[in-house]
Measured scan of single mutants.
Amino acid sequence: AMEMGLACVVCRQMMVASGNQLVECQECHNLYHRDCHKPQVTDKEANDPRLVWYCARCT
Rank of each mutant, 00 (worst) to 15 (best):
E24G: 03
M14E: 14
E24W: 02
N30L: 12
L51I: 03
A1M: 13
H29P: 02
M14N: 13
G5Q: 15
M14L: 11
V23T: 05
T42S: 11
E27G: 10
A7Q: 08
A17K: 13
Y54C: 14
V52S: 12
S18L: 07
V9F: 08
E27D: 10
Q40E: 10
Q40F: 11
C58P: 01
Q26Y: 11
H37N: 06
H37Q: 05
A1K: 15
L6Q: 13
P39L: 03
S18T: 13
C8A: 00
P49K: 12
K44Q: 08
K38F: 06
G19P: 09
A7V: 08
M15R: 13
K38I: 13
D48T: 13
A7M: 09
R57V: 08
C55S: 00
A1P: 02
L6M: 15
V52H: 10
M15E: 08
C8P: 01
E27T: 10
C25Q: 02
L6E: 07
M4S: 14
H29Q: 05
S18K: 12
V10I: 10
Q40G: 12
R34P: 15
G19Q: 05
C55W: 00
R34V: 11
L31I: 12
W53I: 03
L31A: 14
C28M: 01
A17N: 12
Q26E: 11
N20R: 10
A46K: 14
K44M: 10
V23Y: 10
V10K: 04
N20W: 03
E27M: 07
C8Y: 00
V9Y: 06
N30I: 04
L22N: 10
K44P: 08
C11F: 00
L31M: 11
H37S: 08
K44V: 10
P39K: 03
V52C: 11
Q26V: 09
V10W: 02
V41T: 05
D35R: 10
E27Q: 07
C11E: 01
M4H: 14
V23I: 12
D43H: 06
C28L: 01
A1L: 09
L6C: 09
Q40K: 10
E27H: 11
V52Y: 03
P49D: 13
Y32C: 04
C36Y: 01
K38M: 09
Q13L: 08
L31C: 14
R57N: 09
R50L: 09
E27K: 15
D48F: 03
S18E: 12
V10E: 07
E45T: 09
C55R: 01
G5P: 09
R34T: 12
Y54A: 07
K44N: 15
M14D: 15
C28F: 01
T42F: 04
E27W: 04
V23F: 11
T59Y: 04
C36N: 02
A17P: 12
E3N: 09
